[in-house]
Design a protein around this nucleic acid. Structure first.
Lengths: 164, 164
DNA sequence: TATTGTTATACTCTATAACTATA
DNA sequence: TATAGTTATAGAGTATAACAATA
């Protein structure tokens, strides 16, 4: 591809200032995305010792909270497509953390049941997650935390005026 | 794989209640992730008419704000690896929104320059993004918005006590 | 020896269509 | 005909190693 070859200095050479993302910083979503990246890394580090990823951890915790859950219900709850849960459930079952029990009521469905080890691992992983989040948010007041959670829920539920 | 076949009812059959993600809702990061998913969908819908994705939009806006920027600087600013920007820059250049100018000062580097069309498209896409975010956050007070942005920045910068 | 942009590669996450076995 | 779980597949996003040209 043909390219110009003029003597255009880089921003650094021109001003000595670091480049800025001022326009992007005007959007709330940009800040949320960057913060989410940090929180995701914290979570990954906290649960990696238990052999869990974000999705397998989330699925395990929900199954522990809701023994007997079917996979379709779990998918709805975690807002993921059913096919994407199959490998996650396979993984958790292979690790001995949950079991797929066949139900007599509906022989198409499985009742997802946590094992004793699954319940234990979920508790330990959640505690690690809690500790990591507490460290990351050590400087956060209870009021600010409440505001953030309330706003995030408002966004998620479409209560900001954008629900169509 | 062998599976049990007992008559374990699903949660719905057992209680008539919907399954809950109560434990996960105790984590701030869970709410941020779910809200981010909504905001990301809003952004994608807003800039899709301009042929832009989140990354190409972000790169374009930063280049418009910082003409002459090098690719490595852009990567640092957007917190992505250099190789992942190549296709993004190729795409923006192919659409005629930016140009890779060779610099005489450092012949390894390109100075990324927006075209007139790129400047125009960036402005229009940002306006669409702004409108979408305004709709989504219509019920959000200025105070709450400020809190959210302040907390997200604190998280991103590691000012919560977790900066090691 | 280090850096810029690049290629190749791979792994994760996510989404859709279609299959099977049941209902 | 509709649903539960599954398979196959494909698209994005993201990460690392290594290369050629240049510093």
């Amino acid at each position: 591809m043909e390219r110009g070859c003029e003597d255009i200095p880089t921003r650094d050479a021109e001003t000595g200032h670091a480049a800025q993302d001022a326009t992007l910083r005007g959007f709330l979503g940009y800040h949320v995305k960057r913060a989410m990246s940090v929180l995701q890394a914290d979570l990954a580090g906290a649960i990696e010792p238990f052999g869990l990823r974000m999705m397998s951890y989330s699925a395990l915790v929900v199954i522990v909270d809701n023994p007997g859950l079917r996979q379709a219900q779990l998918a709805d709850l975690l807002a993921v497509e059913r096919p994407n849960l199959v490998a996650v459930i396979d993984d958790l079952e292979g690790k001995g953390l949950i079991m797929r029990h066949k139900t007599l009521a509906d022989r198409r469905a499985y009742a997802l049941m946590p094992t004793a080890e699954g319940i234990d691992t979920a508790a330990k992983a959640s505690e690690a997650n809690r500790a990591a989040e507490a460290r990351r948010l050590a400087g956060l007041s209870a009021e600010d935390r409440a505001v953030v959670i309330r706003v995030m829920n408002m966004i998620e539920r479409g209560e900001g005026g954008s629900a169509r």
